[in-house]
C-alpha cells in the first residue's frame, strides 16, 4: 500500500513537470482554472442558502414529522419505564443508586397498601402526552421551517394528539391540518399517526396485577407469573419494609420498575 502511494505520487509529479514544460498548455490550464472559478462562484450564489425545490407534488412531510415525534416519545417512554410510569415522581424509594416510584403505599404497619395510581395505563398515557406535547409542536415547527426554506407557504390548523398504550405497541393519534402552497400547487396533510413497537403495555398490565394483589393480599407470586409469561423476567427485591419490582422483557429489554410498601413489618 505504501509503495503504491509513493508510485502514484511520483507519477503525478512527473505529469506536472511535463505540463509546465509546454507554454500553450499553460494558457489552456489558466483558461480551465478560470472557468472552474467562475462556475464555482456561480454555484455559490445560486445554491448556498437555498434548497433545491423538488417537484412540489412529491414533497411529503409526514414521515419527517412522524420520525421526529416518535423520537421524542421514545425518550419519554424510556424515562417513564424507569420511573414506574411517572415522568417526574415525587414519592420514591432509593435503593442501590436507583429510584423506585411507589405505586402502592401504606404508612401503617400490617395494613395493605393504597393504590396511588389507579388506572395506571391511563395515567401513563397522560404522562406521555404531557411530556411529549411540546415536542410534537416543535416537530411541526421544525419541519415547517424547513419547508419554508424550500419556498413553501406552510399553514397549520389545530393539533389533535393522543396516546394509547396497547399490549405490544403505543399508538399515537396525531392529526393536524397542514397546507403546503407552492406557486399554484396546494397540498394538504392531516394524519400523522404513529405506531411504536413497545412492550410498555404488557409490562404495565403485569404491574397492575402486582399492585392489585399487593393491595389486597400483601403478596404476589412472581415466580408463577414468570411461568405464565416467560418473556417477562421479574426481579423482586425485598428490602427493609419495601418490595421493589423490576419487570423486564427479555427480548426488547424494556425495564419497568417500581416500589410497593404493603403490610410492612408483618410478622
Amino acid at each position: 500500500m505504501a509503495f503504491e502511494m509513493r508510485k502514484n505520487r511520483l507519477a503525478r509529479t512527473k505529469t506536472r513537470c511535463t505540463l509546465f514544460a509546454n507554454a500553450r498548455g499553460q494558457v489552456a490550464i489558466f483558461i480551465i482554472v478560470a472557468i472552474v472559478i467562475v462556475a464555482g462562484i456561480l454555484f455559490l450564489f445560486l445554491f448556498l442558502g437555498r434548497v433545491d425545490v423538488e417537484d412540489p407534488l412529491s414533497v411529503n412531510p409526514t414521515k419527517d414529522i412522524q420520525l421526529c415525534v416518535e423520537d421524542g416519545i421514545q425518550e419519554v417512554v424510556v424515562e417513564i419505564l424507569a420511573n414506574g410510569g411517572i415522568y417526574e415522581p415525587e414519592h420514591t424509594f432509593a435503593y442501590d443508586g436507583e429510584n423506585y416510584t411507589y405505586l402502592c403505599y401504606q404508612d401503617a404497619d400490617y395494613l395493605p397498601c393504597y393504590n396511588s395510581f389507579p388506572g395506571l395505563e391511563t395515567v401513563i398515557e397522560n404522562e406521555i402526552y404531557e411530556q411529549s406535547k411540546d415536542r410534537v409542536d416543535e416537530c411541526f415547527d421544525l419541519v415547517g421551517e424547513d419547508l419554508e426554506r424550500q419556498g413553501f407557504l406552510v399553514e397549520f390548523g389545530p393539533r389533535e394528539f393522543s396516546v394509547d398504550i396497547f399490549k405490544s405497541r403505543i399508538f399515537v393519534t396525531l392529526n393536524r391540518p397542514m397546507t403546503l402552497t407552492h406557486e399554484e400547487t396546494i397540498r394538504d396533510f392531516e394524519v400523522f399517526d404513529i405506531e411504536i413497537i413497545s412492550d410498555l403495555g404488557s409490562l404495565v398490565d403485569i404491574a397492575r396485577e402486582i399492585i392489585n394483589y399487593e393491595a389486597q393480599y400483601c403478596f404476589y407470586d412472581y415466580h408463577w407469573q414468570m411461568r405464565l409469561t416467560p418473556e417477562i423476567n421479574i426481579n423482586f427485591i425485598d428490602f427493609q419494609t419495601n418490595k421493589l419490582y423490576e419487570l423486564e422483557n427479555r427480548v426488547s429489554h424494556e425495564l419497568f420498575k417500581f416500589a410497593v410498601r404493603s403490610c410492612p413489618n408483618q410478622p
Binding site: 402502592c104 395493605p112 397498601c113 393504597y114 393504590n115 396511588s116 389507579p118 388506572g119 395506571l120 395505563e121 391511563t122 397492575r208 399492585i211 392489585n212 393491595a215 389486597q216
Partner: peptide, 25 residues
C-alpha cells in the same frame, strides 16, 4: 382512609384499595 374500588367501566379498568380522593373516575 377507607380503600375502595376505583373503576372506569367505559374502558374496563378496575383497581382495588384506592382512596376515594385518589379516584378520578
Amino acid at each position: 382512609c377507607q380503600g375502595g374500588c376505583c373503576y372506569d367501566d367505559s374502558i374496563g379498568s378496575y383497581d382495588v384499595s384506592v382512596l376515594e380522593a385518589n379516584c378520578a373516575t
